[in-house]
Structure formats: C-alpha cells, structure tokens
Amino acid sequence: MAGTSAPSVAPTVGTLLPLIGKSDTKPTWCPGCGDFGVVAAVEMALKRLKIPSHQVVLVSGIGCSSNLPHFLSSYGFHSIHGRSLPVAEGIRWANHTLTVIATGGDGDGFGIGAGHFIHTMRRNVDMTYVTMDNQIYGLTTGQASPTSMMGQKTKSTPAGVIENPIDPISLALAAGATYIARAFSGDVKQMADLVAGGIQHKGFAFIDAMSPCVTYNKINTFDWFRQRVYKLENSGHDPTDIVQAWQRSLEWGDKVPTGLFYKADKPTYEDLEEVLTAGPLANQPAGLKGRESLLDEFI
C-alpha cells in the first residue's frame, strides 16, 4: 500500500508502487482451461512493462473468460455480455493515462459484441483487446460460437454448424486495427510477448488468443493446435506489409500461424480528439462557472 498522499488520477512518478499480481480470488475455470495461460500472459506482460497495478484497468464482458479481471490486482470492470469494448473506450477517454485492456471470449467479442469490435478498431483507440477464443460457448454449456468451424456438432447444432466462421484476424485487418496478432494458450511466453507488444503499441492492439475449452470443444483442443501452429516471426513474415498480412490471415487448417500479423503507426482516437490534448479528461476543470458569455447565443 502506498501512503496517504493526496489522491490524483494522474500517473504517480518516481514512487515505487505495487505491480500487478494475483488477487485473492482464485480462478473458477475448469482444470486445464486455456484461460489460465491467458491470465498468466497478461500478468507477465504487465509485470515486464512495470506498469503499477493502480494504473491498469481490465475490462471484460460476460462468459467464462470474462471473469479474468477478478483474478488480478488491478482496477477492473466486469461488464455485460458483448459490451466490454465501449466500456473500455469510455474509461480510456475519461483518463487516457490508464492502461486499458479488454478481455473476453469469442461469443462476447465476435457474436453479441461484433459491432463494437469493428468500430473500436476503426477508431484506433489506444488500448489492448485480448480475446480468449475457444470456438465454443462454455459458460452456457456448449453451443456453437461465431468461430466454431463448419460442421462442428454442438448442443445447438446437433447436425453440425452450417455457417462459415468469422475470421477475427482478417476482420481486424479490414476494420483498421493497427496491431493484430494470434496467440495460443499452449505458448504462454509468446502470448506474453504479444500482449506486452500490444500494450506498448500506440493504437488498437488486438490479440486473438486461441484458448482451448477442455470441456465443450472436443475438436479444437490443445493437441489440435500443437499439430498446426507455426510462428510468423520464424517464417519470414513482414508485419508491416498488409498484403502479406492478408495472405497469412487466410491460413487456417493444416497450418495455423501465430504471432504478429500486422502493425502500423497511425494517429489514435485520443490523438485526434482535441479536448483530450489538454490532458486527461478526469483532471480537467468541469462546469461553466464564469462562462456567462455562453448565454449570448440564445438572445
């Protein structure tokens, strides 16, 4: 605990402040769940970047994976199904000195929240979004998700899925995200690198973390991924080349690329919102005291 200094929402400089750690709430995920790898990677990334826990806000929606904010010691907002991104945007714009990371599942982000996913990317809000993509609805006990593969039999699709899955990577490319990566819970070190890179990236960073559901998805298992994943950084991929990124994004099947698909430097929403150039909104003066001239327009 830091002392009793006057509260400020501005960053505290030159003080040793607690880094992020585990909270006193234990994860309730099934033993072996891919999400354990994701929470570990997020914690590792934040520790490596030495961002104090009070400067971090983890925002989630609803679903197994959206419980994640409860398990770390930062600020958090466990919101409603599909709405993590607009909540996270509001937090960023209220105080853009905060490190804002949204986390959640594939149903949350690509199903009920798909509209926000696209619009947050096109705005290039400076935040990080980690989806724990298990290609199934887990907490509701095993229905098809937007990323379930064609033909997969689930409780809601006993004859097999008959619609094409969303490809989050190419969707992110089309929508204008400026940092796009795929990670795999079987490689926490790589995932932590990608999350750390996303946090450091100035702009919207999207990391689709393949996080197998050991209970309800018997197809896309840890083994399924281990047999298919290969690392983009070892295969001559240039993440600054959007054409190469598009080509790699189409690979899904015998081979599943992981790593950084695409990265670009573009102005962020916060850069372009003029009101925020005066500093964090939460620290700006509020109200209209002494602004009587504003009434002149009504005469």
Partner: peptide, 28 residues
C-alpha cells in the same frame, strides 16, 4: 467547454461508453 462528445455506433455503445467514462472519473 471541454466536453468530449462521442457519436457512438449504436445506443448500446453510447450508454456503455458513458458508464465506462463515469467509472473512469468523469461525469457522463
């Protein structure tokens, strides 16, 4: 007057952004 105005993609986003901003420390 230093007020951030965000035209959201829909009303779902609008209210959730306002809730996020309020949590973040501004009247919304």
């Amino acid at each position: 007057i230093g007020v951030v105005v965000k035209q959201a993609e829909d009303e779902l986003a609008a209210i959730n952004m306002a809730i996020g901003a309020s949590y973040g420390g501004v009247r919304s």
